[in-house]
Design a protein around this nucleic acid. Sequence first.
DNA 1: GTGTCGGCCGTCTGCCGACAA
DNA 2: TTGTCGGCAGACGGCCGACAC
Lengths: 398, 398
Amino acid sequence: MKPTAALNQPSPEGGENNCLNSELWHACSGPLVSLPCIGSHVVYFPQGHSEQVAVSTNQEVDAQIPNHPTLPPQLICQLHNVTMHADIETDEVYAQLTLQPLSPQEQKEVSFLPADLGCSSRQPTNYFCKTLTASDTSTHGGFSVPRRAAEKVFPPLDFSLQPPAQELIARDLHNNEWKFRHIFRGQPKRHLLTTGWSVFVSAKRLVAGDSVLFIWNEKNQLFLGIRRANRPQTVMPSSVLSSDSMHLGLLAAAAHAAATNSRFTIFYNPRASPSEFVIPLAKYVKAVYHTRVSVGMRFRMLFETEESSVRRYMGTITGVSDMDSVRWPNSHWRSVKVGWDESTAGEKQQRVSLWEIEPLTTFPMYPSPFPLRLKRPWPPPTGFTSFAGMKSDDMALN
Amino acid sequence: MKPTAALNQPSPEGGENNCLNSELWHACSGPLVSLPCIGSHVVYFPQGHSEQVAVSTNQEVDAQIPNHPTLPPQLICQLHNVTMHADIETDEVYAQLTLQPLSPQEQKEVSFLPADLGCSSRQPTNYFCKTLTASDTSTHGGFSVPRRAAEKVFPPLDFSLQPPAQELIARDLHNNEWKFRHIFRGQPKRHLLTTGWSVFVSAKRLVAGDSVLFIWNEKNQLFLGIRRANRPQTVMPSSVLSSDSMHLGLLAAAAHAAATNSRFTIFYNPRASPSEFVIPLAKYVKAVYHTRVSVGMRFRMLFETEESSVRRYMGTITGVSDMDSVRWPNSHWRSVKVGWDESTAGEKQQRVSLWEIEPLTTFPMYPSPFPLRLKRPWPPPTGFTSFAGMKSDDMALN
DNA sequence: GTGTCGGCCGTCTGCCGACAA
DNA sequence: TTGTCGGCAGACGGCCGACAC
């Protein structure tokens, strides 16, 4: 046990400072992922956190894990810090969030700024993302760059050269440099990355089906990132801590922080987590208190496509109920049971949360000069003390 | 989130059953590591478990982590199950232990069988372990087998062939087959592994300084394992759960199990953990209640050498006190402060536990027809309730 | 007894345009 | 427009004994 091997929590990458390229991080995490603003109010769901841990450890959540007696199904927190990171081994993007549960007094004084709905998570404009072919990853050749992509994001070639060629230098999430020979040749002419490409492929252990993306930012810097295909989870079950202990640990950390109004730290893995479990408070309030849903109602929901773009799937609400009425009664986490229109959507969640869906209503919910004050979608049973006793009638948008 | 990706806790390796080769596991874990017997009584130390988690996550234990109010510094448990495993990625050996804390009533009825001191952890006899040289791991050539090692553990060559050669098939901890061409050639003659060796080196990502070991068992089967050098921890800080949550989780799991007398699961990584934190009850009782230690006393302690053998280091006891008097008062974990004779021992622990050392006394402690009934090494303060209120005078060896 | 090297051959890497989808 | 292939040249992998420590 060498003392020098110890690292401090805030910077798991060690040598890397916190200036990790935000544009690149968001490009890698995908078009649907946004991070709440530092300083804003958010809602944290232990259930959702538990789901992420379950996926990451390849373990189902053991139904025998007791819930922490004092931990409500959601905590309203102030988001003190957000840092973006990438796994050293896999380049998987993740974020570290520092949360501080609000005291009951603070919850009453909370203000809902419209800006809290999310911020600064725009996808970069000058970028492209290509799914690698067998030829791209083979040792036999280089990388075939789609023509429009090359013209949009790579520096222009000097076509007086024969053949036109240049050296590209791109930096990844760890700020490592990668050099490629970019050449325009062949019959018909095409853009290719040759020398340097295979080193990159083997270093990142890319296989056909994985995606690579390039970004050309305003400062004329080139960045590149990777997005691995959803191949069957190779994430090993951790040999550090039992799955049960991990689930207990996240509950204990949140409960302790809530009891003492102190800060706690969580990791959010956008590519692995089934759903966001830290969402802006305003988004939660809008969805839970200002949206009327009922069985049979139609809705749509956004999903990411293979090509890193967005498409809507349609469905029908088939029920509204607790997902886990024993351990998490009165939780809004995945309280909506849904059916999907397309049969190919069979692998989609059968339960979603209110803030994930967009109900198709005949009357406009927003914008409205007066905040709508609707009842909770189903009647709260006695003893309902979540949301710190705040009743829906107390809620108002500033 | 595909349901098929879910695995059950007991077999993290998935396809691998629990018949993992015990001889090979122990050879890889080293000569000092022994696992308590299934069914026996053991003592579990949350502090030690926490140390292992700290090392595995490259994090110091945060002093602000609250201890669980009801969790004593050690739990007497029955060991219900032990399974040996190896990390899929790194081949690092680890064991999964299922523990059940004893009720106060059970603790009073506990019996101390001498056999509980440990069992069946003998090192294999027909084996060798070699630290890899630059030539061994270079792509330029094969593996040079020490002559005595080859003659002892490899099947004999047919020396009528010119040159004498054969194909060796060895299985690793995951039961994967590795084939090597074993040849006896050169001037002077030497044993070499050629074809197949470089595949193994690159697959296991071995570098110079790592060790490889071969075992020839009674059933004439050949096994091989690896032991990586203690290079600076490349174990990434987990992006799954914060270090704080992990420490809270292991405490919560143990506390919950103790409160309900139910089973809990822990992982023991012998190569990573600074010290064993699950030890046979008899070993604990002998060390804590039947050994007299005092400041100034000389002792010796076993350490593993680079060559996978054992050597003794000498030292002097410089103090006996709580390691963490705030969170873990009256714990025997690392209660002994020591100084080491050799200046090169500077990186050794400054604190050890009683059962790790062998005090040099002038009177024989064992064997003795009468159990010695000594006082605790330092007076227990008021409110000392660990070990379930069992006083030292209540202890006796059967 | 064994670690490293020069020599030598064979395989594979990797760049090229051809060709077709 | 771009995925895959055959052709080809050079780099590297990998087997050998020489030699030194």
